[in-house]
Amino acid sequence: MMSSSAAYPPLNAPGGNMFNNMPGYEGIGAAGFLPPPMPTEPVPPPQPMPDNWDIPALTEDIAREALKDFASSHCCYGSDPADKGVITNMEPFNTFRYRLETFTEVRSHESAQKPYEGETADFYTQPAPQPWEVQAKPPSLFTNHTEEIRVPYTSSVKECDGCHAKGTKTCQNCNGNGYKSCTRCDGSGKKEEQDCGRCNGTGKDKCSKCNGKGTLECDICKGKKKLLTYIKLKVEWKNNENDYVVEQNSGLKIDDLDSVSGKELFKNSQYMAYPLLGFPDHNIYEASERLIKEHQSKFAQTSRILQQRQTVELIPITKVNYKWKEGMHLYYVYGKENKVSAENYPDSCCCVIL
């Protein structure tokens, strides 16, 4: 066991913060981050690509039912175009969506204190573990979570400065008197030449905040009179996600695709992702290469990367042209949910809901 004089400076050392010279926690309270340890796992080899990239073509019946559902979900839309319109052409514009998720762990620390409740004051007993040596159990992969941990061997007990170890503070509402001037008689004790019924002629109202005591429990030590001071380690797990959708020339806005899912063609989770070399659409390979580099550059220096996951979906998009009342119209059916976009639906009116 390391002696206290060798391990850490005395509690009353010049400079104030007793944690300043603790190995791994120097300059506590200053802005910055705790650099993660360097990764030791090798980059994995490329993953084989699946062979089946097709998605079944949309049938006219499904396209019509999708438009019917769309019309019925709008109170101002009539059902005739969906029921009686004649589909003249259906053209697929299926596209790919690539998603990269990087699951990271970030650690930061600060000096903290809490009301003392009998915890062991273990400061000085042995050197504290380094920030990245403190045990913290991560949540399920690719889920966000935050945990605060009291670092072992950093705890000490001190008297509460806020109340000078009394456990109570003077009530500011009544200046410690326990009462205030009666609001009904303005402190005179009389109302219309009779004793005030509110204060029984005393001219005083019991302070409602301190219940007449004149003191309140100290809000710092919660009446315990002492504080436990320690180093608090904050551990944040975060799933960082970026998507890329290959441009398609159907006329449907790419933003519309954010609300739908597609057919999952590829999903791979490992310590370090590798660009999807050999993917049939070169745009996906380029997107995977670019996003992997961006995530490495953005997260590797300030976070510990625990896992990366790549997903490729084939999103169905069908442009449907149809004829109704001598006019030509179109709509889009997209996503596994068969969602519809029909900006110029031909049978609509202005509804007034009373």
Rank of each mutant, 00 (worst) to 15 (best):
V86M: 13
M2P: 04
G118Y: 14
P45E: 15
L330N: 12
R97H: 01
Y244W: 11
V86P: 01
G176L: 15
R64F: 02
D186I: 07
T202R: 06
E286W: 00
P35T: 12
C349Y: 14
A82Y: 02
F96M: 14
G15W: 05
F33D: 07
G176P: 02
D69G: 10
E117V: 06
L216P: 01
Y322K: 05
N242M: 12
K180D: 09
T311V: 15
L141F: 10
P42S: 13
T168N: 14
Y334C: 00
M49W: 02
Y179F: 15
R64A: 06
S261N: 13
F19G: 01
W53E: 07
P36H: 10
N21M: 08
N242H: 15
T154G: 09
P138G: 14
D243Y: 12
E326C: 12
K325C: 15
E326V: 14
C185V: 08
P129K: 02
R304Y: 00
E41M: 12
S341D: 11
R150P: 00
S108K: 09
A165K: 10
E65W: 04
K209M: 11
I231E: 00
P129E: 03
G118L: 10
V134H: 00
K166L: 13
K169N: 05
K225C: 11
D219I: 12
I315K: 10
N173C: 04
Y116I: 02
M328D: 12
E247L: 10
L265E: 07
L314M: 15
N52S: 15
A66H: 05
S303P: 04
S341F: 08
K158C: 07
D51R: 13
K180P: 05
L314K: 15
V106L: 13
R304A: 11
A136R: 04
L252M: 08
T143I: 03
C76Q: 08
G162D: 06
T104P: 05
P139Q: 07
P127H: 06
Y244V: 04
P14V: 05
M38E: 14
T154S: 07
M328A: 14
D195Q: 04
T168P: 02
E289A: 02
L58G: 03
S4T: 01
V157W: 01
T95Q: 03
N338R: 13
K336A: 11
T302N: 04
W237K: 07
L330D: 14
D219S: 13
K224A: 13
N94W: 00
S259K: 12
